[in-house]
Design a protein around this nucleic acid. Structure first.
Lengths: 122, 122, 122, 122
DNA sequence: GTGGTCTAGACCACC
DNA sequence: GTGGTCTAGACCACC
């Protein structure tokens, strides 16, 4: 995984896990990598991974059992909430970028529709 | 100006000038800040500013006249091109982020329309 | 401050701050020691103090302003809640200890009353 | 048994024996585990157990008969004394903790009574 | 000056 | 093996 130096690594780790949960790649009950394994995998310090895991625990996304590991424990209600939050962020960023380029609401929607049409043809 | 450490600063400077041109805040013929003044303003090394100005000159966005300064020289055709390019980038990023969250084309368009409706009411 | 090795230091730091808030020695708006100063004072690593401060922030007990410091931000409602929680803990520990010694409810209350009487006379 | 690292283990072993005597789980004449067996049971060094047994012997709580083992030898008078001492410690700790939270004598007694009422209902 | 992030590595408790 | 705590110290951003 590549990290954007503009954002704390532990936040990026959390975002990645959230996305995996939303896409169903990680489901409630699944064991995730141990802090040490994950740290080795993405080449960061185990302390940084621990911080990400700890914050996810406080958000009730995962549950940690000492000596056993960390397990996904997110409820579907919570999952829906997270999905909406993340989507809203992307939406806001996108809209403000397009407004910055002087696009009107209608133009933005049209560009989006065009992009989808092109996508279909491929 | 705040710079994202994940991207070269000279690129970010260029993007900023491009946006200003697109929004009409900078028009053909306008004199822009000298490299030294600009460097002082945004607190970066003058060499970095020089690189940004040089690249903009190669793209025919600005023209430098010895002893006089640097002037916007972009044509309206070029401007339209840049605008489309930048918009396309934002669009692609946005779509791939939303797809990452498992949103369908229809859902994305609906979310966008809702966001615009809410924006109106404010 | 002396720390009990049986409990994490950052928890003990938090408990100490909570008590000071309950007793009114720290009031909403008060600036508390900077992480570094506090670390020096109680002779622990600044990272440990930071963890305590961060957890207090998540509990809305304090508020942190970058570059300015950390300030008490607890509401009186929250304060009452904390006070009850801490008292309940002390109460439970005490009762189970006394039950361990085979004291009945009545005996415990009588011992307490006696202790208060003696306290008065001093 | 779990030991609190804040206190010498031999003291904690003694406290545990005292409690068992007070609760009548160990009576005068009972044979207690040999030092080696006890050490194995609670996973501490036999020297630590020996120290605990020796101190209990000096307090006339147990008696060691060469080649036979260690036997409880506490008198009922002594037992009452110990019980009071331990209770007094718990009481003092509890009162000072509650005073720390600004509770008055009356409030402490009321909280205790409430706790007993709730205990009954369960 | 302030807090925030991260690394490297020790040591502990639980399994 | 697992996670939890702590230290020492670097480097950064904000004031």
């Amino acid at each position: 995984m590549l990290f954007d130096p503009a954002m704390p690594i532990y936040i990026q780790i959390m975002e990645d896990f959230k996305k995996k949960m939303i896409r169903g790649e990680l489901k409630t009950g699944d064991k995730i990598l141990s802090q040490r394994e994950y740290a080795k995998l993405v080449k960061v310090n185990p302390n940084t991974v621990q911080r990400a895991y700890r914050e996810m625990e406080m958000l009730n996304l995962v549950e940690t059992l000492r000596g056993q590991g960390t397990f996904v424990s997110v409820t579907s209600a919570k999952l829906g909430e997270i999905k909406k939050e993340m989507a809203q962020d992307f939406l806001n960023t996108f809209i403000s970028e397009m407004k910055d380029l002087n696009y009107s609401n209608e133009e933005i929607i049209n560009l989006l529709k065009e992009a989808f049409k092109e996508g279909e043809q491929e």
